[in-house]
Simulated scan of single mutants.
Amino acid sequence: MSEKIPVIDFAPFREGDTVARSALAAEIYRACHEIGFMYLKHPGIDSDLIARTMMHSRAFFNLPLTEKNKLAWSDEPSNRGYVGVGRERLDESKPGDLKEAYNIGFESGSTQLKNQPSLSCNRWLEGDDRFRDTMLDFFSACNETAKVICEALAIAINLPEAFFVNNHNQQDNTLRLLHYPPIKQTPESGQLRAGEHSDYGSFTLLFQDAVGGLEVRNTRGEWIEAPFIPETVLVNTGDLMERWTNHVFCSTKHRVRIPQDQRAKQSRYAIAFFCHPNHDTEISCLKTCHSKERPSLYPPITAGDYLLSRLKATY
């Protein structure tokens, strides 16, 4: 397991009976416990929707910087909008990351006004309803898949099936479009496309292109490749899931390095869906994850407070 990220067919969990679901949950347990990453085949998201979302993402990042900056990210509590190249620093000890991003959150519908910057409003391109509609459709599809993954994670650690679903039902999630531009000049010392980091929430769904560069640190401290595998989504557990489960599930460090070949001159695109618990959920050690021999490692903290602290450190 430390040499290779497992590929798991998720269809038997989504479509199977209790026995099939329990068997799949056991596979997911091993992946989340031993490495914190897994590829899921048949995740339940339409491939045409994934392709359409990627197409709109490329078109967005090809816009002039002046247009993208009209939607600029402004603060940690909202965490929405456009983030320019070098603005984010995932490894606090290194220079800013060689990437740009665009963050989208849950949108409640007609109660929101387009382009109104607030805690509950996304920042949309004016006059481009196709972009907006595609992103909201993709957000919804990822959220539905996340619900089923929540069920699998709960079964894996002997909790009621609805436990994680109920603690993620406010959709405090973030959809992030990512673009890593071609490298046109020598990076600063230690600078990467995305610095070494772990994700902050419960788990992440990652959709990437074939350019490559994503690496995961295994239990021996070695960096192993996490390449693009067609018709899969890459899933990794994050910091809050690690805290919740008392390190039964791990939050593994990863990074996006700069390729040492012609791919460095190519754009790399990815889409991440960060699944977070409800803002006011208390993250404290789960009853099935501690014992006298395995005491709780962390004090309780609300999911919102933890996320805010990590975003402040990142920006």
Rank of each mutant, 00 (worst) to 15 (best):
N122M: 01
M135H: 05
G84A: 13
K99F: 08
R130Y: 07
E107C: 08
R130G: 07
N103H: 10
K70S: 15
H42N: 15
A101P: 01
A72L: 09
L98E: 04
M135R: 05
F139I: 05
G84L: 04
H42V: 06
G81K: 00
R89T: 15
G105D: 07
I104S: 00
S57E: 03
E76K: 10
M54P: 01
P43D: 11
E88P: 02
E92H: 13
I35C: 01
E34R: 02
L65R: 13
G96T: 04
N69P: 06
R80N: 03
G84N: 06
C121L: 09
N103V: 06
A59T: 04
F61L: 09
E88V: 11
L49D: 01
A31D: 00
E88R: 12
L65E: 15
Y39I: 10
E76P: 05
T53F: 03
H56N: 09
A51L: 03
R130Q: 12
K70M: 14
Y39Q: 06
H56R: 13
G36H: 04
G36A: 10
L65A: 15
G84M: 04
R89G: 12
A51F: 01
F37P: 00
F60H: 02
V85K: 04
R52T: 14
F138K: 03
Y102H: 04
N103W: 02
D75F: 00
D48N: 13
R58D: 05
N62M: 07
T66W: 04
K94L: 11
K68S: 09
S74N: 10
T66R: 11
K99N: 15
C121W: 05
M54I: 07
E34W: 02
E107M: 08
L136R: 01
P95T: 10
F138H: 01
G36L: 04
K99D: 13
G105P: 00
F60L: 06
F37S: 03
D128W: 03
G81L: 03
W73S: 09
E67H: 09
L113V: 15
I50F: 04
R130L: 10
A51W: 01
G81E: 00
D46R: 08
L113S: 15
W73H: 07
D91P: 00
F37W: 02
N79Q: 14
K99M: 14
R80C: 05
P64R: 15
D129L: 12
E126G: 05
C32N: 09
L71M: 08
P95Q: 11
G44Q: 05
M55C: 13
K41R: 08
M135W: 04
L136S: 07
L125G: 02
F106A: 13
L113W: 11
L119C: 07
K70T: 15
A31M: 05
M38T: 02
D137C: 14
P64L: 14
D48F: 05
N79V: 14
S118D: 06
D46Q: 03
G36N: 11
N62D: 14
S110R: 07
G84C: 06
I104V: 08
L98P: 00
R130K: 11
L63Q: 03
I50E: 07
Y39N: 04
G127D: 10
Q116Y: 12
E107T: 11
N103A: 09
